[in-house]
Write a protein that binds this DNA or RNA. Sequence first.
DNA 1: AGAGTAGCCTGTAAGC
DNA 2: TGCTTACAGGCTACTC
Length: 295
Amino acid sequence: MPELPEVETLRRQLEAAVRGRTIADVWIDPGTDRLVQGMPVRAFVDGLRGRRLEAFERRGKFLIIRLDRDLTWLAHRRMSGNFILANGGDADQAFLRARFTLDDGRELRWVDLRKFGTMWLTDEPETVLAGLGPEPLDGAFTVDGLRASLARRAAPVKAVLLDQAVVAGLGNLYADEALHYARIHPKRPAKSLSKAEVARLRDGISRALEQGLANLGSSIGAAPGKEMSLRDHVNLDGEPGSNQEHIVAYGREGEPCLTCGTPIERIKLAQRSAHFCPKCQRLPRASAGRTGRRA
DNA sequence: AGAGTAGCCTGTAAGC
DNA sequence: TGCTTACAGGCTACTC
């Protein structure tokens, strides 16, 4: 699923491939009625047509495309949104929800099986991005800052890591990976973490995200020899990333922990799966019950 | 205000 | 074989 590494990989590829091009035409599938946010579809289409793609940025899981006339085009891939660059007029594309034809005849295709993806066209992008926490690969993402955020929360640390106000860009996959690297049980109350544990968590987050970036993202459905299903992340060329080959926790239920060999367990937490090694990521007795820590 | 959860969506897989 | 149900999950809206 698209999290920070998948969105950042896409950003880099878009910048290299289409920066400076102009949008010649736009088509939105009428059945994808949640795609355009904050304005009528007609206004979105009219507003984008003729705009130049000047810069590609990212904030959390948001892709930010700066246009001329001080306009900003934002896209959020949510579960299954993919941008694929194609030559115009190719054979039909499964799950095609929108098409952005460029002035050189190529087209950016928005392909989104689940139709959860969203886009905005605005001169006030900060409104859309309001409430996002620090960028985890920035120097501004410090141990002290993370510690202060976690100290206010009694909820399981895994659930808190998914809160984009605490740190921007983590999703279910990289949160599991980060907690495994940090050797912290996903159910630990966020406020119960020691300073040393928060430091390990911060490093684990960086490590998981950097590794995802180095491998052009994780594409869980991409088994060797199998046709790419478009159920999850593909890159601008339609090809999967390779980080699924380097994952230590997510989706590895029953498989041996790469550190100690203990089978990875899966539990339901915050309405989604959490994967962890019961030996490397122990739950202290004080955390097993309520919020722990008796003063 | 923090925490928990239904719902959005659709294809795949498991169960009967 | 064919139908039904559960599941995957980012995020918002809602309740307690």
